[in-house]
C-alpha cells in the first residue's frame, strides 16, 4: 500500500499566498520571469498591483525584496530554487539575513523534480547552504497540505524564512486536520527496529519504504523533520533512542543537509550511528522523476533495500564483535 498522490506544491503556493494576500495588504509577490512555471502567476491574476515582476535579474530581485521589507511589506520571492538561493546568495546574506529582514524566500523546483531540466536546475545543496546561514529559518514541507500550512505560518512569522517547494505533484502524507508546528518534528510511524529520519517530499516515500520493510518484519520508526532550522533536537534524540540506529533520507545532498544536521545533533547529544541516504556528493542530470529517484536510491523500494542491507551489515558487525 502506498500513499496517495496529493496536489503539486506549486499550485498550492500560488493559491495560498494569494489567499493570504486577500486578507493582508502587506503581502507582495516578486517573480523573475518564471511565474507561469512556479504558479506565482495565480497571484498576478488575483493581485496584479502587488505582483512585482523583476525580470531575469535574481540578484536585484532579492535586494528589492529587502527594501520592500523595510517599508513594512511582506515580500514572497519566487523563482526556481537554484536561481533563488545560489545565484543571489550574497544578496540574501547581506541584505536579508544579516539585517534579519522579513523576506520569505519561497521558490519552487526544489530537488529532483524540476521538469527534466538537468544539472543546472537541479539544486541539491540548497538546504545545506541556507541552514548554514546565520538567522535563516529553513523549512521543507512534505506535501501539499503541509506546504499550505507552512506558507500560512511564515507569513505571520517575523524574519527571513526559506521554504523549499516542489514543482510536481507528490504523495500526500497529511490529512486536512494537520497542523504545522514551527520547529517541531513529527513522528509519522512508530517502530522499534530502525529510526528513519526524513524531510520534505522524501518523507512520504520513506513511509512507503517503512511499509515495505514491515512486510519483511522490520518495524521502522519514522520521524519527519519539516523545520531543518531551528532543528527539533529533542525529537531527534528521542527518535534515535527508540532504536539506537538512525538512517536519514533526503532528496538532497547528504552533506550538510538533514543528514548533516541529524549527525551533528546526535553526536553532541546522544552518539548514535547515523547512515545518510541521499545524493552522494553528485550533481543531478536530466531524466524522468521516477528514473532520478531510482538512480539516486530515493524511491520507496530503493530506500527499503538500502535500509535492509544496512541493518544486515549492522548485525554482521555486531556478531563479529562478540
Amino acid at each position: 500500500m502506498t500513499l496517495p498522490m496529493g496536489r503539486a506544491m506549486r499550485e498550492v503556493f500560488g493559491e495560498t499566498v494569494s489567499d493570504l494576500a486577500a486578507n493582508d495588504p502587506r503581502i507582495v509577490m516578486l517573480d523573475a520571469d518564471v511565474g507561469s512555471s512556479t504558479k506565482a502567476d495565480t497571484f498576478e491574476h488575483r493581485h496584479p498591483e502587488r505582483y512585482l515582476q523583476m525580470g531575469i535579474a535574481e540578484q536585484n530581485m532579492l535586494g528589492v525584496a529587502a527594501g520592500l521589507a523595510t517599508t513594512g511589506l511582506i515580500p514572497f520571492v519566487s523563482t526556481f530554487v537554484a536561481f533563488a538561493v545560489v545565484r543571489p546568495l550574497d544578496q540574501i546574506r547581506v541584505l536579508i539575513a544579516q539585517p534579519g529582514l522579513n523576506v520569505k524566500i519561497t521558490p519552487g523546483y526544489a530537488g529532483l523534480f524540476t521538469g527534466v531540466t538537468g544539472k543546472t536546475h537541479l539544486i541539491v545543496d540548497d538546504v545545506s547552504i541556507m541552514r548554514a546561514m546565520p538567522g535563516m529559518v529553513t523549512v521543507c514541507p512534505a506535501d501539499d497540505v503541509e506546504a499550505d500550512r507552512v506558507l500560512r505560518w511564515c507569513a505571520a512569522y517575523q524574519g527571513p524564512v526559506y521554504v523549499r517547494l516542489v514543482r510536481d505533484a507528490t504523495q500526500r502524507l497529511f490529512d486536512d486536520a494537520y497542523r504545522f508546528e514551527f520547529g517541531k518534528a513529527v513522528v509519522v510511524r512508530e517502530g522499534r527496529d530502525v529510526t528513519l529520519i526524513s524531510t520534505g517530499t522524501q518523507t512520504p516515500r520513506v513511509v512507503d519504504a517503512a511499509e515495505l520493510l514491515a512486510a519483511q518484519g522490520i518495524e521502522a520508526h519514522v520521524l519527519h523533520v519539516p523545520t531543518i532550522k531551528p532543528l527539533d533536537v529533542p525529537a531527534i534524540v528521542a527518535a534515535a533512542a527508540r532504536t539506537g540506529y538512525v538512517v536519514t533520507v533526503e532528496e538532497h545532498t547528504v552533506i550538510g543537509g538533514l543528514g548533516g544536521a541529524v549527525a551533528e545533533a546526535l553526536s553532541e547529544h546522544r552518539p548514535t550511528t547515523v547512515k545518510r541516504l541521499g545524493m552522494q556528493d553528485v550533481f543531478g542530470e536530466s531524466a524522468s522523476n521516477a528514473a532520478l529517484l531510482e538512480l539516486y536510491g530515493l524511491s520507496a523500494a530503493r530506500v527499503a533495500d538500502q535500509v535492509r542491507s544496512l541493518l544486515g551489515s549492522r548485525s554482521k558487525e555486531a556478531q563479529a564483535q562478540i
Binding site: 529587502a66 527594501g67 520592500l68 521589507a69 517599508t71 541584505l95
Partner: peptide, 20 residues
C-alpha cells in the same frame, strides 16, 4: 536605512523601498 558593504546591492534595496 539599509545594511550595505557588498558592492552593487544598495540600488536594488532602493528600488524596493521606493516601490514599498
Amino acid at each position: 536605512d539599509m545594511s550595505t558593504g557588498s558592492l552593487g546591492m544598495g540600488i536594488s534595496a532602493g528600488i524596493g523601498i521606493a516601490l514599498g
